[in-house]
Design a protein around this nucleic acid. Structure first.
Lengths: 108, 108
DNA sequence: ATTTATTAATTACTTTATGTAACTTAGTTT
DNA sequence: AAACTAAGTTACATAAAGTAATTAATAAAT
C-alpha cells in the first residue's frame, strides 16, 4: 500500500511558513521597506535569528536587500514580487485569528 | 517612540502555524478522520512529536480525539469546526506553492 | 586624536525543540 | 506462551532558537 506522497512544492511552502519568525518578518515587510533594527524591534526577534531569516528569504527570492551608500550605510529590506504574493496567506491567518483565537483576557 | 505592537490574537495564530508539523497535520485531517499511525506514515512525523502536536491541537479545540471502544481500541482524530475553519489558510499556501515554489528538478 | 555612538551584523554559550530508536500496555492471533 | 498491532512514552542525541557580549565601519563629540 503506497502512501499518497505529499506534493514537494507544497511541502517546501509549508516548511517555509512553519519556520519560526518567517511569517512575522514577511508581515512586517508587507507594511513597507524596513531596516534591520526596525524589523528587530517591531517583532521582537533577536539579531542572530533575524540575520538568518533574512538570508534565507533573500536566497529564496522573497526579500530584497538593498545597500544604500549613505554615510553611515543604510540597509533596506523589502519584499520582492514573490514575497508580496504571500500576502493572501498572511491576511487569511489574520482573519482567522480575529474570528477564532481567544484574546488574553477572554475566558473559555 | 512607541512601537505599534502586534495584535496578540494574530501572534497566537502565527505561532500556531509556525510550529513545525502543525500545518501538515491539519492538512492531513482536512482529508478526513485519521488514526495515529495513519497520520504518522502519511506525513513522516515521529510518534513523539505527533503525540505532542495532537495534544496541543486538542487543547486548542482544533482537533477532536475520539476513542472507539472496539477491541482493540481505535483512536480517531478529526478536525473540529475551528480546525476546518483553517482550510482557507492551507489552501492559500497550496495555491501559492504551485505558482511560486520551484520543484526539485527545475533549474533557476 | 581619542572616546563615544550607531547600524548591521557575528560569535560564544545556554536553553528549547525536534529526531531516533527502544520500550510499554492492552488486547489478539498463532 | 510467543509474537503482533496500535497508540503512545521514555531516554538520549542533534538541531534550532534565545541571550548577551563583541565587531567593523563610519560619524559625532570632547
Amino acid at each position: 500500500m503506497t502512501q499518497p506522497t505529499i506534493c514537494p512544492k507544497f511541502e517546501k511552502a509549508i516548511s517555509l511558513i512553519s519556520q519560526k519568525w518567517t511569517a512575522l518578518v514577511i508581515y512586517q515587510l508587507l507594511l513597507g521597506t524596513h531596516r534591520f533594527n526596525e524589523i528587530q524591534s517591531s517583532i521582537g526577534i533577536s539579531g542572530k535569528v533575524l540575520s538568518d531569516r533574512l538570508k534565507d528569504l533573500e536566497n529564496q527570492g522573497i526579500v530584497k536587500r538593498e545597500v544604500i551608500p549613505e554615510t553611515p550605510v543604510i540597509i533596506e529590506y523589502s519584499l520582492t514580487k514573490k514575497g508580496r504574493s504571500m500576502e493572501p496567506i498572511i491576511r487569511d491567518i489574520e482573519k482567522w485569528s480575529q474570528l477564532w483565537v481567544k484574546g488574553e483576557t477572554e475566558l473559555s
